[in-house]
């Protein structure tokens, strides 16, 4: 099970005013808000946490087929930085998913997995060929053995990422 999310930082700056009254309270827990206020770059931390929640939500949505908007129930924790890649976990209604986040000056990209060893199995796809959505959830169809693989697509501004496992 996988999920991904990409944030175009230039577009995010244009589209969202995260300093707006009430904005952080609606989507970040008190602990997450503390991480934002303690961060060297608060804006980057906002989108770092947000992309982790989004990527984890995509796994939850695939597993349960439940759609909803409950960012406060997707809590980011256990953040570790190894070789400039940020590893973390997100707790979603009792389940824990693992996240791996890359931050550049242009974008923030998170991949979430259910099993931590799946990070090594992630493949990047170049296009949407053979991808179909069922109930809004994308899958890759393999014609040769009539099987499907989970796919996650994220597109924001200048960036798009399609992954499979």
């Amino acid at each position: 099970m996988i999920g991904n999310d990409i944030v175009d930082l230039a577009l995010a700056q244009k589209e969202s005013n995260w300093k707006r009254k009430g904005f952080l309270d609606k989507i970040f827990t008190k602990k997450e808000q503390l991480q934002i206020s303690n961060a060297e770059n608060a804006e980057v931390m906002v989108w770092n946490l947000w992309s982790r929640k989004e990527a984890a939500y995509k796994i939850y949505n695939r597993q349960t087929q439940i759609r909803g908007y409950f960012p406060l129930q997707l809590e980011c924790f256990d953040l570790k930085i190894i070789d400039r890649i940020i590893f973390g976990k997100v707790m979603v209604k009792g389940s824990i998913y693992f996240t791996k986040t890359e931050i550049t000056a242009q974008f923030i990209n998170t991949i979430a997995v259910e099993n931590v060893q799946d990070f090594d199995e992630i493949k990047l796809l170049k296009n949407r060929n053979n991808i179909q959505k069922t109930n809004g959830i994308p899958e890759y169809f393999e014609a040769e053995n009539l099987s499907t693989k989970p796919v996650s697509i994220s597109h924001h501004g200048r960036f798009q990422q399609i992954i499979s496992v």
């Binding site: 589209e15 707006r20 904005f23 409950f70 406060l72």
Partner: peptide
């Protein structure tokens, strides 16, 4: 609508209608 902008929609609804959308209601928003 970008999922981060859905928060703005919710905040705008709260302001426009002078109501408070609690987390439980927000969950059903999409």
């Amino acid at each position: 609508i970008n999922s981060a902008n859905l928060v703005d929609v919710i905040l705008d609804i709260e302001e426009e209608f002078s109501i408070i959308i609690d987390n439980q209601s927000m969950e059903r928003m999409p």
